[in-house]
Design a protein around this nucleic acid. Structure first.
Lengths: 122, 122
DNA sequence: TTATTGACTTAGACCCTGTCCATCGTAGGA
DNA sequence: TCCTACGATGGACAGGGTCTAAGTCAATAA
């Protein structure tokens, strides 16, 4: 645990946090001006491997990093401004996929992205 | 309708087709060697606007283009080799998101990606 | 104490994906 | 025949991300 890694971990703290790697880098640099992009990417990669944060890519642009990895959840995205909220649908989304639609796959996970307009944009 | 556009449309034909723009370009170039990347991107963009194909981004890398746009479906992705299959879950995924979990959004769409291992990789 | 080792960081080069723009070709109309 | 306009082309460019060589630093071995 180095100061760089601690700062990255601290930046990624809170609810509904979905920062891009660049945003993480910018916020980390406020506290540790000389931290490099490579270190941020390395640390984020390790946090993902450790399952402390999850990667979210909702727009085909930069991946975002979601620290709320211990509570399974899905995402609700505003199609206009890109705002992301964590949401908790009812039931198990995996149950909706019948065996004959699994093509012999061992399916382990279902990732759901809801899209719509947020109150501000609507 | 030019020969370039026709070739791009022909390349994107069939079931379970999920090519990247570069793959589309490579296949189009087999038939029309001088077709440019820009033209492929332009044509793909138009096909998306016309809702003839949909964009899929399952890995945060290159977007993929799915010609099966007239039959609503979701995707099943192999976490190991990246193979993508079109699948048809039962029920409406939107129904699983209760009002109090919508945060005032007008939700219009749910995009589901199932992940697991394909028979070959398992 | 000094030397060695190995893990971590840094800066910058580099790659991939995608967009933009100036130019060119060509088909159709005046 | 000459214009015009649209589409195609190639190259430059930008954003996101990865890789590598070199530097730093702390802990251990001699």
């Amino acid at each position: 645990m180095t100061s760089q890694r601690r700062v990255v971990a601290e930046v990624l703290d809170g609810d509904h946090v979905h920062l891009t790697a660049d945003e993480v880098h910018a916020r980390a640099a406020e506290r540790l001006p000389e931290i490099s992009r490579a270190t941020v990417y390395n640390t984020l990669g390790e946090l993902v491997t450790l399952r402390e944060v999850t990667e979210v890519s909702t727009d085909g642009r930069a991946k975002r990093y979601d620290p709320n990895a211990h509570h399974p959840h899905q995402h609700l995205v505003c199609s206009s401004c890109g705002t992301i909220r964590d949401v908790h649908p009812t039931g198990d989304p995996l149950a909706a996929l019948p065996t004959e639609e699994r093509f012999g796959f061992t399916v382990s996970e279902a990732e759901v992205t809801y899209r719509g307009l947020c109150p501000t944009c609507a």
